[in-house]
Design a protein around this nucleic acid. Structure first.
Lengths: 221, 221
DNA sequence: CCTACCGATCGGTAGG
DNA sequence: CCTACCGATCGGTAGG
């Protein structure tokens, strides 16, 4: 405990608000933090309990707010879900782009190296520590509104776009036998489903997972 | 319309109940039908809207009951969910067993024929018309109680048991390169995810899907 | 961002 | 299986 001073005034000295106009940068940073805390907490709860089974009161409590306060930051529970999903897709696309660039610098764009980068990056997005955002998208997007779903479809297409030429090249070179379209759907499904069974503590590492997936899907020629 | 008789008494002749002790077989058959209607309607609604987003009133209305009546047949909404899932797993196991027997008679147990039968049967369980039960299991089992989940784990192990020796044989013969355990998890994931994107109206048939999956996962040697 | 609150909905039950 | 109902919870809001 410190004695009352200018920053911690005695109770009789208007304890409610700081004097003068609040500094804008500080206020915005605080707002951004609170909003971000809500998104992060919501992602975790939505992933663990599901969207419907998570109340906005749960989320408020997780960040130390009262029950009505999340609606100061988000106009509805749905908007909060969409914010979670949008952030997940943006970071997934960022991670994927970086992985492809790293690979391009190392290997002059061999398609097997590219698909390896895509799969490894995808596993990290799904299974990396604290990465609850994309799993929420995969399993809770049904709760989105029509307009939100439309916007999400665009993000998913952006994300999947780099897979198509890589799989086409692997098909042309004989490493992939099934059709490119069905292969993409089946491969992404196999990866996405890992959210259901992968256990960080025991079992395989993401690197082992990646190698197994490549050995399963692609021929050596 | 038929004239009032012993089976359809006139209104003044105690219309509430038939006289005497109800014939047990008839009563049980009626109960079974109502119960079965509830399970079927619940499966459809749970699949379309999710478990949490479906109210017991929705289910009651779908079979022409009033709001409290489903609880005459099931002691809780959860018990109804478990009935849906249990029926789905039983019919999946039955279908799978029959598929393996058909294949055994035709091909003397070639592992490639066996895996083909397993995959084709799995797609039918997931994507066949009216087969909502197993998809509900895949996406709503989180809502089960601990005891229900334990019982379900046994059913899932029973279902997956035939896959292990078949995949092991394919691994030994060089048709499968990745480890048997990770292969099984990734393959079943790829198939299960088809629930998310398969459209009965357009797109591929279950037969084309099966062929694509086999071409994707297994080497020709 | 808190306080106090509202209308709606939900799973479930008693009693017949 | 219906009728009538209950307690609890929930998303969301007004007003500060």
């Amino acid at each position: 405990m410190t004695a009352p001073d200018l920053l911690n005034p005695a109770p009789d000295a208007s304890p409610k608000r700081p004097r003068g106009r609040p500094r804008k940068t500080l206020v915005e940073r605080d707002d951004g933090n609170r909003r971000q805390h809500l998104i992060t907490a919501a992602a975790r709860l939505f992933r663990r309990q599901g969207f419907d089974a998570t109340s906005t009161r749960d989320i408020a409590a997780a960040v130390g707010m009262h029950s009505g306060s999340p609606f100061y930051h988000f106009k509805s529970k749905n908007a909060l879900l969409y914010a979670v999903i949008e952030e997940g897709m943006h970071s997934a696309i960022t991670r994927q782009t970086a992985a492809l660039q790293e690979d391009a610098q190392a290997q002059v764009g061999h398609p097997l190296g590219q698909i390896r980068a895509l799969i490894r990056s995808h596993f990290e997005t799904l299974l990396g520590p604290g990465n609850d955002f994309v799993p929420v998208m995969l399993y809770e997007h049904r709760a989105l509104s029509e307009r939100q779903r439309t916007a999400l479809t665009q993000l998913r297409e952006d994300y999947e776009a780099p897979w198509k030429p890589v799989l086409q090249a692997l098909h042309d070179s004989g490493h992939l036998q099934a059709s490119v379209k069905l292969s993409r759907l089946l491969i992404l499904g196999a990866l996405n489903w890992s959210v259901q069974w992968f256990d960080q503590k025991k079992g395989a590492s993401l690197e082992e997972l990646t190698q197994a997936a490549i050995a399963l899907f692609f021929k050596e020629c």
